[in-house]
Design a protein around this nucleic acid. Structure first.
Lengths: 112, 112
DNA sequence: CCTATAGTTGGATTGTTGTCAAACAATAAG
DNA sequence: CTTATTGTTTGACAACAATCCAACTATAGG
């Protein structure tokens, strides 16, 4: 099991987290991770409507902003929300975003 | 007293709010509004380190995303946080962002 | 009417971002 | 070793965003 480079908890930046969550595709990925816990990139990126390289780009944004943790096992990469880290750094923020996103039809994240 | 065009509560988009709050300059403006309540653009934009036209651009972003309410009285424009509207639409979100931003030195919003 | 104040708009620039396509790398499995 | 699977990287491109400057609008006050 190999861990990819991530920002430490104290280096997670508020503006970068907000920026990461402000993209509809990334928000959808985060919602899936919140609903299903750890999942591979392929599963998380299924039927997102974007090219796999675009999805890969979003995985990196989410990882580098500190929103998700990625670990590699064999040829698979498992992503999971850094829920505890984010809760420690910005209490209530992720939960508020998740609740807000869930209260709205998924198609509306982009534009109503 | 004249009101500028704003999105209605139900048309406030989560991703647009997050996007609006993800800019250090705008986040600083929002912090000032949270601390001092209603204030004019000049006061809100004082010593932000950006040109007044840039600040004006940010005021519009904040208004069009639904974060602030702007009303004109004479030649002054007063901005205030749409705290109740945001609380109704995305409960806990603004408070979590404000708390997160306050817990960090202002200079760190950009980059530590 | 003239002038100062408050803020916006338009243009230009510079940098960032989201996207796809094609090529690549790494691993698992036959 | 060969092949299929998983995901990344690189390049290209268009759209967007932050910024400044200069010009503008609108209002208040003399």
């Amino acid at each position: 099991m190999r861990l990819l480079p991530h920002p430490s908890v104290e280096n997670i930046q508020l503006t970068e987290v907000l920026r990461a969550l402000s993209d509809p595709v990334r928000l959808e990925i985060v919602l899936r991770l919140a609903a299903a816990g750890e999942m591979t990139c392929t599963v998380a990126g299924d039927a997102l409507g974007v090219h796999k390289s675009t999805a890969s780009h979003h995985y990196r944004m989410l990882r580098e902003s500190g929103v998700v943790l990625t670990k590699q096992e064999g040829r698979l990469k498992y992503m999971s929300l850094r829920h505890d880290d984010l809760q420690a750094r910005f209490p209530g923020l992720l939960d508020a975003v998740l609740a807000a996103a869930l209260r709205i039809p998924a198609e509306a994240h982009d534009r109503v």
